[in-house]
C-alpha cells in the first residue's frame, strides 16, 4: 500500500486518496486560437513513462484538497508531495 504525505494533513494511507493523472499537463490558454493538436495533447496524449512521474491526487477522504505527488512508476517510491498551486522547478 502507498503512503502519501498530504501537504495539509500529513502521512496518510493510499485508501484516503483518489488518483488524478499526469500533473504536468497544462490546459491551453483561454482567449486564443487553439489548434486540434493542442487540444489533443491536453485531453488525450500522455508520456506515461517508467520512472519519476509528477501526478495529481485528491485527498478525497481527508481534506479534499488536490495535491501533486512525485512518484516512481516502477518502484512506487514517493520523492515529494506538493500543494496543487505550488510551482515545481
Amino acid at each position: 500500500m502507498l503512503h502519501i504525505k498530504c501537504p495539509h494533513c500529513g502521512m496518510r494511507s493510499q485508501n484516503e486518496f483518489s488518483y488524478g493523472g499526469d500533473a504536468s499537463i497544462k490546459r491551453p490558454k483561454l482567449n486564443k486560437e487553439i489548434s486540434n493538436e493542442e487540444w489533443d495533447n491536453f485531453v488525450y496524449n500522455r508520456k506515461s513513462l517508467r520512472g519519476k512521474h509528477l501526478e495529481l491526487w485528491q485527498h478525497l477522504s481527508g481534506c479534499r484538497q488536490w495535491i501533486k505527488v512525485e512518484r516512481d512508476t516502477a518502484t512506487h517510491e514517493i520523492f515529494n508531495t506538493y500543494r496543487a498551486d505550488e510551482e515545481i522547478s
Partner: peptide, 8 residues
C-alpha cells in the same frame, strides 16, 4: 486496475 500509472 490498481488505479495509478505503474510499471511495477
Amino acid at each position: 486496475l490498481d488505479g495509478y500509472n505503474s510499471y511495477s
